[in-house]
Design a protein around this nucleic acid. Structure first.
Lengths: 219, 219
DNA sequence: TGACAAAAATAACACTGTAAAGTACATTGA
DNA sequence: TCAATGTACTTTACAGTGTTATTTTTGTCA
């Protein structure tokens, strides 16, 4: 009986801990969502811890119970977008089997992500580029879901298929990646500022670029 | 005699005004130089008006007598670097007459500027891209010293010379420019963070890219 | 020398991120 | 049921930031 009582108490204790943990994750999530909204509305410069706290009825210091500091919160926000990015490339890779089409689909998916999540893209590849390492290291996605690895695999397969000439995979991947990144980042930077950088033109630019590498890197 | 006295007085008054104006420009220049030092030391994030003022023994508010606000001062700082950029491309253009060599020299000059003035490059093309318009409009350099125009001219000449295929000059320039910018911006972002992005590798990447466009855009 | 204008400094406001200390409350064990 | 404990949260405070309005100093001119 005493053992039964003990185990019941133990069960209650465990449930209680679970419930508390769940509640904790919920408020963490609430903060994260409020932060995401604020980030998408105000951008990097206008992103303020105190305003995030105010929006969900907390005191600024409460956030520090769930995130190390402002940077940590912002990283958590962008990390979500980055997971989407990896998955977008993963999908593009998986839905094509032909090496050339894969390479092209990857390029287009890359662009579309940048256009649909400009703030996340800018943070990850232009403002806080040290985070790209952080994500690949934190998650255990080195073996396939990592965007860079996916691109490199596509490059290697294109080489094997005789679509692009053989060469150092990393260097070739970097070369191709640079071009796409250049288009995307300039698109985000110049959109609405300089003519000829609206979405339609940028998509055409990517198509041109895909043809360029196909022709310029052919064996 | 009274007229002679008046003209002398007028001359003195004018000299005085000149002297005052000169003094004014000197302190403006002092602020600008202190700001430049601080920017190169602390970067964009750590750039503080109050520290700039402190460094040259002024009160923060004094800066507002010479610059509209922080943004204006920062723009003035970057504007200098941008002038160097335009001149670097101008020199690269002028020191080569062969269209292909010109194109290559421009690409290399572009890279070298990014590597030698990373902070300025990042501000102008990654962080405060709206400034590229401001400079081209402020200065009267639309007719030749503007970096973009120089590049486009080189592209047009390369087309005429049969080095790259005919096509819309702006689109082609944007395509080529994107690639170089992609390499340079990734180099600045990834240097010291991700392997294979140190200076030597980046230079090789640019060389590869130059070959790529030569081969991929050939008529 | 005294009036005037320009230059610089003070004081203040509304923010920011962050650390230390304090409080209210739910959970636990006797 | 009651005191002890630990968790979630707030209060308070500090050292910064950019920026504005006001006041003081300084130099120039008649």
């Amino acid at each position: 009986m005493s053992t039964a009582a003990q185990t019941r108490q133990a069960r209650i204790k465990q449930r209680s801990a679970e419930r508390r943990e769940r509640s904790r994750q919920e408020t963490r999530q609430a903060i994260l969502e409020a932060a995401t909204r604020m980030f998408e509305r105000e951008g990097y410069e206008g992103f303020s811890l105190r305003q995030v706290a105010e929006n969900i009825g907390y005191t600024p210091t409460t956030i520090y119970l769930y995130f190390k500091d402002k940077n940590d919160l912002l990283f958590a926000v962008c990390s979500q977008g980055f997971a989407e990015f990896n998955q977008a490339l993963q999908t593009a890779y998986a839905t094509h089997s032909d090496p050339l089409e894969r390479l092209q689909a990857l390029g287009r998916a890359y662009l579309e992500f940048g256009l649909s999540r400009p703030l996340h893209y800018q943070m990850m590849f232009m403002q806080r580029s040290e985070w790209v390492l952080k994500t690949t290291q934190t998650k255990g996605d080195v073996e396939g879901s990592n965007a860079y690895i996916i691109q490199m695999n596509a490059v290697i397969e294109a080489m094997k298929a005789g679509i692009i000439r053989m060469g150092d995979p990393i260097e070739t991947t970097n070369l191709i990646w640079s071009g796409i990144h250049g288009i995307v980042s300039l698109a985000l930077s110049m959109k609405g500022i300089v003519p000829k950088w609206e979405e339609a033109e940028v998509r055409r630019l990517v198509e041109d670029y895909l043809k360029l590498i196909q022709r310029g890197l052919s064996p």
